[in-house]
């Protein structure tokens, strides 16, 4: 039942991103902070709709798959390819293909099984990187994307900054009040403590 729901949601999200491509991509804020995460989320939901969600991986393998997602995210943070996705259909196609698979599905598969130190490290770095993007976009004499206006770029910078703050709150809070199942209290094999 929930599986069908996940599958449907995934399909809806994905097709939403495709159908409203023009609208979403007209503004860099919705492009970067809405469409790209939505595509990744579609991938997560897709994986959750399959049996792959139960696959038990050795930690070292889970780490590697998590890193795949990290590099895919890095790639789509390059202004060069965001620009290119707007004018080059191949790049646009690659975007719609790799974000759900390499980012979304990879994380859904491997994140929880990756080493807790790696997860903590990546979370901290994600916050820093959002901050870096905020710093660079808010105050850029340089136009970073040829397809977007400088004023849009600045709005995107503030968007990144807000995202950085939101994400750090969302990740810090559970550390204060983890659910009992997530702490050492239960010595279960799947250790889900989020660092």
């Amino acid at each position: 039942m929930t599986r069908t729901l996940f599958a449907v949601l995934s399909a809806v999200l994905f097709s939403g991103c495709v159908v409203f491509r023009g609208e979403l991509e007209a503004d860099p804020v919705t492009h970067m902070l809405l469409q790209l995460p939505a595509l990744a989320l579609a991938g997560v939901l897709l994986l959750l709709a399959t049996d792959l969600r139960f696959v038990k991986l050795p930690a070292y393998f889970a780490n590697a798959i998590t890193l795949v997602a990290v590099f895919a995210v890095f790639f789509w943070m390059l202004p060069r390819y965001i620009d290119a996705s707007l004018i080059n259909p191949f790049v646009e196609f690659a975007k719609f293909l790799t974000l759900p698979t390499l980012v979304g599905a990879s994380l859904a598969l491997a994140w929880r099984q990756a080493h807790p130190f790696l997860r903590g490290f990546l979370k901290a770095n994600a916050i820093s990187m959002l901050g870096v993007l905020g710093f660079l976009y808010i105050h850029a004499p340089l136009r970073i994307c040829n397809s977007y206006l400088v004023s849009d770029q600045q709005r995107l910078g503030y968007g990144f900054l807000i995202a950085a703050i939101a994400v750090s709150l969302a990740w810090t809070f559970p550390l204060f009040f983890p659910s009992p199942s997530e702490t050492g209290a239960s010595q279960s094999k799947t250790n889900k403590v989020t660092v």
Binding site: P116, G120, F121, F177, P178, T183, V193, V195
Partner: peptide, 14 residues
């Protein structure tokens, strides 16, 4: 990370 993780586990959250 190396300090925080075991402390959170052992004491049940920050």
């Amino acid at each position: 990370l190396a300090i925080g993780y075991p402390v959170i586990k052992r004491y049940g959250g920050l």
